[in-house]
Design a protein around this nucleic acid. Structure first.
Lengths: 131, 131
DNA sequence: ATAGGGGTTCTAGTTACTGGAAGGTCAAGG
DNA sequence: CCTTGACCTTCCAGTAACTAGAACCCCTAT
C-alpha cells in the first residue's frame, strides 16, 4: 500500500504520515524505487495514532501509548496514569477557557456594537489589573 | 523606567516585552547607552496587551485591539466583531475539549490500573474508527 | 514523446514566546 | 582604580505538530 492509499484509508494527510515516520512513530518499508510501502501493521499503528491524537494526546504520549500497546507485559496502571495526566491537563485547559469565555461573553454582551466609539471591551482592557 | 521595572510592574517577562517591541506592538525610546526607556504610555499599552492576552486574544488581534483603542473615531462594532470572533473560537475549543474529556474520562474510569496488561484504553485506541 | 498523477527530499513558515551565549554599562565597595 | 554584581544589549536556537512549496523522480497511458 502506498502513502496516498494509506492517507485515504486512515484520514491522515500524507505529509503527516511522512512526519510520523520522521519522528520514528512508524517505519514503513521501501520499494526498490524508494516509495514507502505500508503493511497492515503500519496501517493499524497509524489508525491508533490518529485516534490517540484525536483525544488530544501529544505526539510524545502517543509514542508511549504505542509502546505500551505493543508491550504485552505492560501494566494497565501505566496506561491509566498516562491517560489520567492527560485528562488533568484537559481539565486545566477547560478551566482556563471557561474563565475566558465567561469574561469575554460579558464584555461582548455589554458592547453596543454600533458606529460610536464608546466600548466597554476596550475600557476593560485598558483597566490596569481590574480583576 | 527600564525594562526590569516594567516587567515587575506589568508582570510581563522582560523577554516578552522585547518580543513585543520586535513585532511592533510597543516602541519604547532609547537612552544614549542603548537601554530601553518606557513611558507611562508604553506601560499602559503593555498592561493592555497583558490583559488582552490573558483573555486569549492572539497577538495579531491584540495589535488590532490596540489600534482600535487608540483610534478615537473607531466604531464599537469593530471591537465587538473582533471579540465575538474570538469568543466563537473559544467556544469551538471548549466543544472539542469537552468531547475529549468525556471520552477520556470514561476510558480512564474503565481501566483497572493494576499490574495486569488488559486495558480498555488501549483497546479503544486500537479500534479502527469506533466512533 | 508527453501528460498526468503518483512518489521523493529538503527548506522554511506557523504561534508566542523562552533559554542561553557573548558582551556592554553602571553604581558601589575595597 | 579595579572589580563585582546586577543590570542591559543583540542574536541564535528551540519549542509542537504539522503544512506549504520547490525541485525533482517514477510509471502508465495516449
Amino acid at each position: 500500500m502506498n502513502i496516498k492509499s494509506v492517507s485515504l484509508a486512515t484520514g491522515i494527510p500524507a505529509k503527516t504520515i511522512r512526519y510520523y515516520e520522521e519522528v520514528g512513530l512508524v517505519h514503513p518499508a521501501r520499494e526498490a524505487n524508494g516509495y514507502r510501502v505500508f503493511s497492515n501493521s503500519d496501517l493499524h499503528k497509524l489508525a491508533f495514532l490518529a485516534r490517540a491524537r484525536s483525544l488530544g494526546f501529544p505526539v510524545e504520549s502517543c509514542r508511549s501509548l504505542l509502546a505500551l500497546y505493543e508491550d504485552k507485559d505492560r501494566a494497565s496502571a501505566d496506561v491509566k496514569a498516562l491517560a489520567q495526566r492527560h485528562l488533568n491537563e484537559i481539565d486545566q485547559k477547560l478551566d482556563e477557557l471557561t474563565t475566558m469565555r465567561h469574561t469575554l461573553s460579558n464584555l461582548v454582551q455589554s458592547c453596543a456594537g454600533d458606529d460610536r466609539p464608546d466600548c466597554p471591551i476596550l475600557s476593560d482592557l485598558a483597566q490596569k489589573m481590574s480583576n
